[in-house]
């Protein structure tokens, strides 16, 4: 479980986050959604300690990460996996080498043990046959899957995903979403996804946090989205007239 308590973040005179408190639950896909400029990426970077908050605390279970020194943070990060928006794969390494990198760097496993783990990960993300391809030789969706495999290869307790569906078609997005949800449930990981993909919200949003202008505007799950009368939420989720008509129809049919 990760708990954010009254998180504030300012850049010079601009206050980007204005006191956010929320809980990200273990074994669930927790979503952070919001319009561009709402502060989602900054919030995610604070949660993974790539930035420090101006004020407030972030608790990983019973550890307040805002008080940790660099060495303690490095130790904690071994429990964190992260999927980046652009996958952030190492261009000079093959699919297999990318996935094996954390194992090479942080474990003392034998060559065979590492290879077995890599093969297992490749199977989990359905990338059999792509072991020796370079990131530039595979599609965006496959790159995301390699990114997922690399981020979970060390069995992290916390998984962060920054816009996992950006640049992907709806079908591939669904595959990625299902994969993340499956991994989260099977491994009892605390997963936090930063997204503005509405399909993801409605498919895997077990806990949804809507940010608006640096504040938490709504918290709920995918089932509560339709019925909520929160105007900010409705304007965000059902932004187009087409979606608004669909929602109206769905509500009338209830």
């Amino acid at each position: 479980m990760i708990r954010a308590v009254d998180i504030k973040k300012s850049f010079d005179d601009v206050e980007v986050l204005k006191g956010i408190s929320t809980v990200f639950e273990k074994g669930k896909t927790n979503l952070i959604i919001g319009r561009s400029g709402a502060g989602k990426t900054v919030f995610l970077k604070l949660l993974v300690s790539l930035m420090s908050p101006t004020d407030g605390d972030i608790w990983y279970d019973d550890v307040n990460i805002t008080t940790l020194n660099k060495r303690e943070l490095i130790d904690l990060r071994k429990d964190i996996g992260m999927l980046f928006q652009g996958s952030a794969l190492f261009d000079s390494m093959t699919v297999e080498e990318n996935i094996r990198f954390p194992l090479d760097m942080f474990t003392k496993k034998t060559k065979k043990e590492k290879q077995d783990r890599v093969d297992e990960m490749i199977e989990v993300v359905n990338l059999e046959g792509s072991n020796n391809k370079y990131p530039g030789e595979i599609s965006g969706g496959m790159q995301k899957r390699v990114g997922i495999a690399r981020s979970i290869v060390l069995n992290p307790k916390y998984l962060f995903c920054d816009e996992p569906n950006s640049g992907l078609d709806p079908k591939t997005s669904l595959v990625i979403d299902e994969l993340i949800q499956k991994i989260t449930r099977e491994n009892k990981i605390t997963t936090i996804i930063n997204t503005h993909d509405m399909n993801s919200v409605m498919e895997i949003g077990e806990k949804i946090n809507l940010l608006h202008q640096g504040r938490l505007a709504w918290v709920g799950n995918k089932d509560e989205v339709l019925e909520s009368d929160n105007e900010l939420l409705q304007n965000f989720i059902f932004a187009s007239p087409f979606l608004q008509r669909l929602r109206k129809r769905a509500m009338n049919n209830k």
């Binding site: 993974v48 790539l50 490095i74 130790d75 904690l76 990060r77 071994k78 964190i80 996996g81 992260m82 980046f84 928006q85 652009g86 952030a88 794969l89 190492f90 261009d91 990198f101 954390p102 760097m105 942080f106 962060f160």
Partner: peptide, 14 residues
């Protein structure tokens, strides 16, 4: 720029 340094940091690499 491709966030690979961030990825290494998150893994716990100096």
């Amino acid at each position: 720029q491709k966030e690979q340094i961030d990825a290494l940091e998150i893994m716990g690499v100096n």
